[in-house]
Design a protein around this nucleic acid. Structure first.
Lengths: 191, 191
DNA sequence: TGGTACATGTAACATGTTACATGATTAG
DNA sequence: CTAATCATGTAACATGTTACATGTACCA
């Protein structure tokens, strides 16, 4: 039981363990699926947090199963620590968006380069939006709006976010957006 | 000249130094104003990166001025390193939004608590949106759309983002949003 | 003369990233 | 048999956060 101000990553793992024991691997998959879109984490971190929480008595490692699987389960202390954490005022969000740095410093880029970056990123966001829309359709069809309203709400955040980002891409002035000003010669033509 | 794969934070500092020498303090202010909304950084980091970049020959410390101010200026190596960085494909954005974790785990919260959090955060975002809108009006009035289109574009990202977030807050189902289900007794009344 | 904003920096620690090492099991 | 996937973990390092220590200059 070392010093422990539960961090959000660790707390989330405890959150997932409320539905039953999970292995590190399971937790990585679950976390990436459930919160990966607004809370990035890596496999390494999960194992490290699990080890630390086991040390602190917040989780307990069970018997190894097939393939060396080692399930962790929530202890009473873990349940209490989670409850304490979830009741605390959540902190401000942090966004780190490298593309916007590149945009801000766009005047240092050769003509068209920025437009290439923008196009590539736009495609990624369009793909993500399409994926969220599919997930949302499925969720609604499955009745998740009543059954799992909290998960639907976070998914809807993703939808709102991706729509806003796409809209931003589409409203960028052509001076920034077109791979244009390409020496003032012919436009790039349809894609 | 130690090993150096320029990171985005350091690169941004170099970016700002293109407009002339700045002290650590200046850089902290500038960075927080220009990129703070989509690239968080702290004062400590700035001084550390400056020291590392001075060591690596990317910047040069000048004479101390009044109040121990120590201006840093860009070297040729720094200019080259920045140019290399800005031409690289920007990485994916990372978002870390603690409130969404709390929402996802909302079923573990006592009734009304989540609604309090949502209300507090909504207010923060509303304030930020108002601020962006004011900045944007000022920028447009000052002719920045032509003079500083890149900065305006990043500001417009902020606008799009905050509008999307507010819209999301406003569309949350009342089961999540109202400080409601408060024992099923009387609603909290108008705000 | 005392408080506040300016200004620089360090230390200690927490968190995040990348790369690697190792082995089990399954599908083809 | 062998490649892919499942699964756990460590090591090394980079980055981010918080707290503190120190001192300057302005202004009320």
């Amino acid at each position: 039981m070392t010093r422990h101000q539960l961090n959000a990553t660790a707390a989330s793992l405890l959150g997932f363990l409320h539905d039953g024991p999970l292995t590190g691997w399971d937790l990585v998959q679950t976390a990436q699926r459930e919160i990966g879109d607004f809370w990035s984490l890596t496999q390494s971190q999960v194992y490290r947090e699990l080890a630390a929480m086991a040390e602190a008595g917040l989780v307990e490692a069970g018997e190894r199963g097939r393939r060396e699987r080692r399930p962790y389960s929530l202890t009473e202390a873990g349940r209490a620590a989670f409850a304490e954490w979830v009741g605390r005022e959540p902190g401000a969000e942090t966004i780190r968006f490298p593309l916007l740095l590149t945009v801000l410093f766009g005047r240092h880029l050769p003509a068209g380069r920025l437009a290439e970056f923008l196009e590539a990123h736009r495609a990624v966001h369009a793909g993500r939006l399409a994926d969220y829309e599919r997930q949302h359709r499925d969720a609604v069809a499955a009745g998740a709006v009543d059954a799992a309203p909290y998960a639907v709400a976070t998914l809807e955040f993703g939808l709102a976010y991706e729509r806003a980002v796409l809209d931003w891409f589409d409203r960028l002035p052509s001076a920034i957006n077109r791979d244009g000003a390409r020496d003032g010669t012919a436009p790039a033509g349809p894609r």
